[in-house]
Nucleic acid binder design. Structure first.
Lengths: 149, 149
DNA sequence: TATATTTGTAACCAAATTTGTTACGTATTC
DNA sequence: GAATACGTAACAAATTTGGTTACAAATATA
């Protein structure tokens, strides 16, 4: 997987920290170390997934669409998956269409990789954006913006 | 992730089915729907990981280095990871080096993504190449080469 | 109303990645 | 010695990814 999942989580944690105040793509991009347009792209995806709202115009920016406790990393993962290829690209494999191992390998692999992905999903579902924010707080040295909040 | 994991699993399942008979890269490539050189590359990686042996010369090819029951999908996953970027590329994210959310986000995300990856690994460890082969047998229609073995 | 701000999105570019392919030296069997 | 088959380097095409510019649309505010 690419960096989108990590950056998206970064964005959401920042928004959780901002608590209701819209945060501009410029601020988010600066924090995440990327370009504002990249942030807006991600925010668009997150918005389609119902995780954030965004406001145009002066003083605008992105906000969480619901409490940070009710947004899991699985939600983020799913939102990002809309844009990305599968984790285990079984289907893009091109097995021999003949009647041999190749043809059925595809569905077999899907069945066998499935539980692994499910396990990962379950683990991701157990972590909320609020927890990410809280964990961030622990790691933040005192005196940093956000260390107290 | 790319198709390498799926194709590598395909190769190993085929070798499990061949039971001791070396299988050439050409045969494997034909079954997996790719190029013999691609197969040899993957076999090289699997060989470095100690999962297969290979024999040069006429009648040569690849063989499992140990019983198929003792090769898990986690072994395959790990072998492939040697060649690939991380599943969740937290580290290649470029967060702001200042004293703010960005700097610590990296280690926080690593800590939070870790359990998800562990969960996936555990699930992969629970599946052996022998099981893949067995599962394949179920899906194979009768009369196909390998349907009986 | 006019201006400044900010999003949404298209378009494009450069870099990296991935897969396929050719080529060729080396090892092994017959 | 010929045929087979691997190991690997080198290269090309296609795809993906992240960054950037550009600009219309929306919104707050003076």
């Amino acid at each position: 997987m690419n960096t989108r999942f990590a950056v998206a989580t970064h964005i959401l944690a920042y928004l959780a920290h901002a608590e209701g105040q819209p945060v501009s793509s410029e601020v988010l991009a600066s924090s995440a170390g990327t370009h504002p347009v990249v942030v807006r792209r991600l925010v668009s995806t997150l918005r389609e997934a119902g995780l954030v709202h965004s406001q145009r115009g002066a003083g605008g920016g992105a906000l969480l669409a619901r409490p940070a406790t009710e947004i899991s990393l699985l939600d983020v993962f799913r939102a990002m998956q809309q844009t990305e290829p599968d984790l285990f690209q079984v289907s893009s494999t091109n097995p021999n269409a003949h009647c041999d191992l190749g043809r059925v390998m595809q569905e077999t692999l899907e069945g066998l990789f499935g539980p692994a992905i499910d396990a990962m999903r379950t683990a991701l579902a157990a972590v909320s954006v609020a927890q990410v924010k809280q964990e961030l707080g622990k790691h933040l040295p005192q005196g940093c913006p956000g260390a107290s909040g």
